[in-house]
Amino acid sequence: MQKTISMPNVNLPQSVQRSSALKPIGLGLLIAAAYFIAIPLVFGANGYLLNVFTTMAAVSFISFGVWLTFAIGRINLAQAGFALIGAYVTAILVSRLGVSFWICLPLSGAVAALLGGLIGWPVLRLKGVYFAMITLCITEACRLTALSFPALTRGAQGIVDLPLPGELSLFGLTIIPAFEKGARLPFFYLAGTLMLLGLGFMWLLDTSRVGAVFRSLRQNEDLASSLGINVAKYRVVAFMVSCFYAGVGGAFFATLQQNVYPTTFQVLDSVYFMVYCFVGGLEFVIGPLVGALVMMISFELLHEFQRYQTVIFSGLMILCILLMPNGILSVVNRSGKPEEATNA
């Protein structure tokens, strides 16, 4: 069988690639439709629920970064720290210098990415538990920094009463109108846009050669470097992208809540970002989104248990790990990869 049809082998991968690109794009459109049309139609009147979805979208955006660091084989618990950095960059620039939120949003990501690169360069040499512990310390260090320099960050009092995003216009053309006080839909749409852009970029990255290089780092750094892959460079790139996501997400939350405190993002948040990735599964780009959705909805469903909410929630989480140690999406195999297609 192999001998007779050996010719199409060269063309096959490309045609496979093309058809397998359609499925994710379709899925992306489906998510977009569900988020931008279905949710507002169904829950539009319920401001509280709209807020839950806004948070869910933004939180999964931040978690995409954690997912990417998992892809290179590192357990990243610094995400909350870099989100805090992004939040403070926006808060300080908006409140002190009156810089537009629309500039601050990408800028916060850039600052976080830059700092992430500086810190990541040495720290990424550590692996496994060591990396997890040191990144946990980084999150804590960010909180302490916010506390220690009140001249800039106003310490424990936090920076409060941040203005809402103003109008975004280009050449006199209004692209996004100024956010109105109390209106929840603008934030809802903004979070959704971020989430979809974030997801789309992750998908492009993951399916590109860069994604393959990242995966190779997780599986075998030595082999990768023997092939001429600059392991240190790619690690830092992945970490910087991750920090960028954190910074942008942090800036979003600062603006959504209109305040920042040193406790806005802390160790527990880092843990949750990681949990979302796990619950959704580490095999798929969409994992963090699925994880955040499942976790946040179940958390809200437990709302009526009031003070027992967290206990039940974490108890369920432990139960989940016990029952499905490899994530919810682990039931599905990484698609498009027929295992052992040919066997003599």
Binding site: A212, R215, S216, Q219, N220, D222, L223, S226, R334
Partner: peptide
């Protein structure tokens, strides 16, 4: 170089 032990990218 190649490696003395079996070395590959497991999941690829």
């Amino acid at each position: 170089r190649t490696f003395q032990e079996n070395t590959s990218f497991q999941d690829m």
